[in-house]
């Protein structure tokens, strides 16, 4: 199977030329007890009860379109990964991050921090309640806008599977103009980052829903 990941060096994304390694990667000959073949584990007692509901972390409701985002974390053989830590962060509905270095002149939302965590259940499922993030401009090139996205960070069963990525929303007109999305060479691989609208998970009179599965890479022992 060809590597679906973007290369380190992708000049249309202007931050890569000074940060991309230039030497060939070394193929590691991990022994059976290499630490990279196992993953840190996290427990429910380490998370707050409302960590997976980004709409209830303040005294009021955040502005925006409420959405439920669900999906499964799967290994390379399609088997669910239970008890995996999933962390997310995102801009608010206006496309603004609550971050000191953020300069986009869109409004902050006092009721939205935009960060959440959960552990997958026995079937590998995660579930977040949040608001749909807005697109936002960035300084990469003239008139550069990021398609709406939620950042995801996932632990699997091996440290080699550790994944940080971004989930997008179906039909976004900004895909064609976004070098971060386009850095993934294969179109089919790119589509793996686009969630699908999920009518079955919507809650009448309350929330829309999107569904997105995450497939972790093969570990060296599976390869």
């Amino acid at each position: 199977m060809t590597d679906p990941n973007p290369p380190y060096l992708y000049p249309p994304y202007g931050s890569t030329p000074l940060r991309a390694p230039s030497r060939p990667l070394v193929m590691p000959s991990y022994g059976p007890d290499a630490i990279e073949l196992v993953s840190p584990v996290f427990g429910h007692e380490e998370l707050g009860l409302l960590d997976n509901d980004l709409t209830r972390q303040h005294s009021g409701d955040p502005i925006g379109e409420r959405i439920i985002v669900t999906g499964r974390v799967l290994d390379s053989g399609g088997r669910p990964v239970p008890n995996a830590l999933v962390e997310i962060w995102q801009a608010n509905a206006a496309g603004r991050y609550i971050h000191l270095r953020e300069q986009h002149p869109a409004p902050l939302d006092p009721n939205f921090t935009g960060a959440g965590r959960c552990l997958t259940d026995a079937d590998g499922r995660y579930r977040f309640v949040t608001v749909k993030p807005g697109a936002y401009p960035w300084g990469n090139h003239h008139n550069a806008w990021r398609p709406a996205h939620i950042h995801f960070s996932v632990f699997g069963t091996a440290f080699t599977q550790r994944l940080v990525t971004q989930m997008y929303f179906p039909g976004d007109p900004l895909f064609a103009y976004d070098p971060i999305f386009q850095s993934i060479p294969d179109e089919k691989a790119r589509e793996r980052l686009v969630s699908r609208f999920d009518i079955d998970t919507t809650v009448p009179d309350w929330s829309l829903a999107y569904q997105w599965d995450i497939v972790l890479g093969a570990t060296p022992t599976e390869a």
């Binding site: 997310i88 991050y97 994944l163």
Partner: peptide
Amino acid sequence: MSTPSQTVGPFFGYALP
């Protein structure tokens, strides 16, 4: 096919540390 990686970006400060 596994889910491709994307950059962590500059705005992870309220989420990951």
